[in-house]
Amino acid sequence: MTISLRSRHRWFSALQQLAQSIPYPLRGLLLGLLLWSTLTSAWINPDPVWQAFAPESAIAALGKLLFNGTLWPHIGASLQRVAVGLLAAIAVGVPVGLLFGLVPMIERSASGALQFIRMISPLSWMPIAVMAFGIGDLPVYFLLAIAAVWPILLSTSSGTAAVNHKLLLLARSLCATRSETIRRIVIPAIVPQILVGVRLAIGTIWIVLVPAEMLGVSSGLGYFILDTRDRIAYNELTAVLLAIGIIGCALDWSLQFLQKYWQPSR
């Protein structure tokens, strides 16, 4: 009896040490996987349709789609649209944010109208985007850009307004021009804030991407979701949802890496 209790204690201690060695993010993923598997199990949902949404079915379908090359063109198309929409948002948001941060009067004058437009859901622009740009990639680019521009603009504006004024006075005393001051002092100082805005923009753009790709395009993850629904391939649909989550996390982690290792002194 004593040996059995000691054995149980050793097993409990080993399991406790193993649990403590697992990183906290991985613990959450394992817990979510366990919950997902439980909710789609046969003893909770005996309907065979629900078995297509099970983790093992989705992972197997994802591996098959990646191995036979079916999913890669759709991933590439979606990432291309994200890149174009994000670059357009940066091209608009950073200069306007700099202008607002450097000239508060302009920011105060335009804040009401911009706040009104910002509160309109990006997906609400779908009919107007189709009327203006037709069917294809252009309305998708427009929707992604208008969804991503606001966090970049606001982060840039707040970062510019918070730049150390002593540095600006020093540049003025050294007879630096306005463009030199912006290029050599303001922009390097606000890069961390811009990265924060870009990270928020990627999160927003990745959410808007899937419904935006249902505007008549013939490729992309959003289009593929509609295709799997029409084919009643629910295991592939779940696999695409899994791929969307993985790619979104990878994009967010890459921005976290840039934020962590960015050195403003450069």
Score class of each variant (00 low, 15 high):
residue 34 L to D: 06
residue 38 T to G: 11
residue 99 L to T: 07
residue 236 E to T: 04
residue 210 V to R: 03
residue 99 L to I: 08
residue 65 L to Q: 09
residue 214 M to I: 06
residue 115 Q to Y: 09
residue 206 W to C: 01
residue 11 W to A: 15
residue 245 G to R: 01
residue 185 I to G: 04
residue 168 L to Q: 10
residue 18 L to R: 14
residue 137 D to L: 11
residue 111 S to V: 05
residue 230 D to R: 13
residue 206 W to Y: 10
residue 195 L to H: 02
residue 6 R to E: 13
residue 258 L to K: 03
residue 258 L to N: 03
residue 88 A to H: 08
residue 121 S to W: 00
residue 114 L to N: 03
residue 187 I to G: 13
residue 185 I to F: 02
residue 143 L to I: 12
residue 61 A to K: 00
residue 35 L to G: 07
residue 42 A to T: 14
residue 266 R to K: 14
residue 179 S to L: 14
residue 50 W to P: 08
residue 158 S to A: 15
residue 63 G to Y: 09
residue 96 V to G: 01
residue 231 R to L: 11
residue 7 S to Q: 13
residue 184 R to E: 15
residue 129 A to H: 02
residue 23 P to Q: 07
residue 185 I to L: 05
residue 179 S to F: 15
residue 209 L to K: 03
residue 254 S to D: 03
residue 198 V to C: 09
residue 217 V to D: 04
residue 118 R to H: 09
residue 204 T to P: 00
residue 260 K to R: 14
residue 33 L to N: 08
residue 174 L to S: 14
residue 17 Q to H: 13
residue 153 L to M: 03
residue 92 V to K: 02
residue 68 N to G: 08
residue 140 V to I: 11
residue 14 A to N: 10
residue 105 M to S: 15
residue 186 V to G: 04
residue 193 Q to S: 15
residue 18 L to F: 13
residue 247 I to V: 10
residue 213 E to S: 10
residue 200 L to C: 12
residue 117 I to M: 13
residue 210 V to P: 04
residue 66 L to W: 03
residue 31 L to V: 07
residue 238 T to L: 01
residue 180 E to N: 15
residue 231 R to F: 10
residue 159 G to P: 02
residue 155 S to I: 00
residue 174 L to Y: 12
residue 48 P to N: 09
residue 123 L to Q: 06
residue 204 T to W: 04
residue 94 V to H: 05
residue 17 Q to L: 12
residue 99 L to H: 02
residue 239 A to Q: 01
residue 100 F to A: 05
residue 90 I to A: 10
residue 223 Y to R: 00
residue 134 G to Y: 08
residue 67 F to V: 13
residue 88 A to V: 12
residue 55 P to Q: 04
residue 39 L to I: 12
residue 202 I to P: 01
residue 167 L to A: 09
residue 205 I to T: 13
residue 176 A to N: 12
residue 146 I to W: 06
residue 221 L to V: 03
residue 147 A to K: 04
residue 263 Q to G: 09
residue 254 S to K: 00
residue 113 A to H: 07
residue 195 L to N: 04
residue 104 P to R: 01
residue 65 L to S: 10
residue 216 G to K: 10
residue 238 T to Y: 08
residue 223 Y to T: 03
residue 98 L to D: 00
residue 17 Q to D: 15
residue 85 G to P: 01
residue 261 Y to Q: 07
residue 19 A to L: 10
residue 24 Y to W: 14
residue 206 W to K: 05
residue 108 R to F: 06
residue 212 A to E: 00
residue 160 T to Y: 09
residue 48 P to Q: 00
